[in-house]
Every structure is written in structure tokens, then in C-alpha cells.
Design a protein around this nucleic acid. Sequence first.
DNA 1: GAAAGCGATGTCAGTGACTGACGTCAGTGA
DNA 2: TCACTGACGTCAGTCACTGACATCGCTTTC
Lengths: 190, 190
Amino acid sequence: MVRWEPGTRERLQAAAMDLYVSRGFERTTVAEIAQAVGLTERTFFRHFADKREVLFGGQELLEQAFVDGVAAAAPDASPLAMVESALSAAAGFFPAERRSHSRQRQTIIAANPALQERELLKMAALAAVVAAALRARGVPEASATLAAESGVTVFGVAFVKWLAEGEQRSFLDIEREVLGELVAMAAGAA
Amino acid sequence: MVRWEPGTRERLQAAAMDLYVSRGFERTTVAEIAQAVGLTERTFFRHFADKREVLFGGQELLEQAFVDGVAAAAPDASPLAMVESALSAAAGFFPAERRSHSRQRQTIIAANPALQERELLKMAALAAVVAAALRARGVPEASATLAAESGVTVFGVAFVKWLAEGEQRSFLDIEREVLGELVAMAAGAA
DNA sequence: GAAAGCGATGTCAGTGACTGACGTCAGTGA
DNA sequence: TCACTGACGTCAGTCACTGACATCGCTTTC
């Protein structure tokens, strides 16, 4: 008999999601989450920096996908083409099966400014690593920042659309549509 | 003799800035801030929702400037032209005299993820009201969101540039430059 | 001009997030 | 065998934030 069940982190995440859904984020206590999986509040904080972070696992993987996408773009690609490649790479993270889970998560976040703050921070971090990846490919500072920020904006807008009721298209298709709209908008003002 | 000194809110803001600079944000207590102006912790929380909010006064005024800017754009202006108008209107908030103060504030924020989160939330709120203003002028949903987000991105990038050491140009000039770069980047991919 | 009400503040007693120090104990390797 | 490690528990403490209630100059009302 093992001393501790494996997958502590994952069990805490699942319990937190459940409780955030049923009681709401603010009305659930870290002690309750820990208790739900037979652990202590102190142990929760050994796995997650804070009560919000438990909803934001996998950030590093998403960042890596974006970075890999930038690296995979054609040698002579424009900054925006590199971003497009990154968006394509990230689309793999959101297959149709994941929509239900993502929707539930997004509902929780939408109900709490504190969680929105954390999400915005994650998106900002994402933009920062994408900008760094672009700079590593020789894109000048200003363009890199703008392209990265725009890319993350497209990602965010596409994500919300993907979650919309009745939406049937793949995440990738929606990303492409939104990116096209952005380019069209900017082109109209050139 | 009056019972209370006037300008409580402003005095709290000033004391908070001072302490955040000298001791750092995390190492200063709300009780200390209140004490510094002869008040109680409880009173601090009657003026500010939390310890971070004290650094983010004047948000409504900035939002209003953006909204007014959108409204002031030419009747046949494109979404991006409306955003440009909004950026121009906002530039009035950042005359050269304010750079020193803004720089100090930005240094505090840059040192604390919790404060960055709050700033990002404020920028997201700004984007939301700009998007609403664009929609009110007939811009379709998707374009409004993208144009607003792009505008706020330009604003943020321009703000950082404006604060850079050795930068001499006006905030408005920098905004225009950054917006131009964004349009050029998007146009290059059209 | 006394009484009533208002508004900004103080006081006090919480709750809950988060931290540091230290103890526990099954498994692991020398 | 035994030292050591890693994941967890226990405990005490700090601090952000909240609700309920008291205080008391000032203003309004009759």
C-alpha cells in the first residue's frame, strides 16, 4: 500500500473546478478543496502558488506551442506570418472534445474579476514569450511586440468565439477568420 | 476647526506611492499607509477597494477621453481612424510634466505581478468601453473588438516608449508612430 | 435654537489566504 | 542497517479585507 495517492496536483485541480462550479470561486475555501481530496490546506499551497493558480495549469505547454509555431514558420516569413504559424500550432490544444471543459472553465473565470486578472496576466506572459521568439528570429523590437500582442489578441477573440453557443467550426478555422479580420481592418486604414 | 482634513483620498494615494517606493509594495501594510496620514486601516478600505487600487485612480477619466475621441471622429471614419482619434484624445492625459510621476508609478508596477494584473484588468476594461463606443457608431462586433484591443495595445506600447530614458517626443507623436507600425505590419501580410 | 439626521471616521471582532518552521514517516540507496 | 529524501501534517503567525456598531462635528428642520 502506497503512502500517498498519485496525481495529487490533478486531483486538487479537479476538486477545485467542481467546487468553483458548485459554490462559486469566492465562496469556496482552500481548506475545502484540500479536504475534498483528503489533504491539508498547507499541501494545496505546496502545489499551487495561490487559490487562482489552480485553474491555470498547462500554461507552459501552450507557450511552448506558440514558440514552436514561430520557429516552424518559413525562413522568409513576415512577422505576422510567423504569428499565424504560432496560432496554428496552438490550435492543437483545443480539439472539439475540449470545448465543454473550456466552456465551464471560462464561465468560472467570467464570474470573477480576480480570475480575469490572472487570465490577463497569463495572456501577457504568452505575448511576452512570443515576442521573444520573434526577436530571436530577427524581427525588430517594435514589430515583435506589436505582432505578438496582436497574435494573442486574435487568440483570445478566437477562443471566445470558439466557445460560443452553436459554434461548430474548429478552433483553427476561427483563428484564421479573426486574423483575416484584423489584417483587413488594418489594411483598410493603410 | 474642521473635524477632518479634506482630500483624504488624495493624501492616501500620495502616502501609498511614497511607501510603495521606499519599502516596496508587498512590504508595506495598509495600516502603515493609513497611519501615515493619521487615519485607520478601515478608512483606507472605505476609499479604495483594495491595496492595489490606490495606484489606479483616474481610470474613468481616461476611459471617458477614449470614448469622447471615438465620438469625435469623422462621420465616415474607418474603425481604425476612430481609434486613432481616441488615442489622440487620450494623449492629453500625458503631458511632459507627468513623465516623472508616471515613470515612478510604472517602476512600482513593474516590480509586482499583483499590480501588473490590476493594470492589465484596467487596460481590458478600457478596451471594452472603446469597443462599446465603436459599436455605438455602427462598427460591427468583431471589428469593434479587434480595433479596440489593437488601440489599447498601441496605447500600452506607446506608453512604455514614452517612459523610456532619453525619449523626448510627445506621447501623441509616439502613439502615431506605433499605430503606423501596426498598420504597416498588418499591411505587409495582406 | 433644540432636535433630528447625515457623513466621515473609529473600534472591534471576525474570516480566510498565505507563509515559515518544524515534525512525521514510507520508501530508497549505500 | 541507516542515513536521507520527498511528500505530507501541524501549528502559529501575518495581513488583506469585511460587517456591525459607535462617535461626533456639521447641517437641516421645525
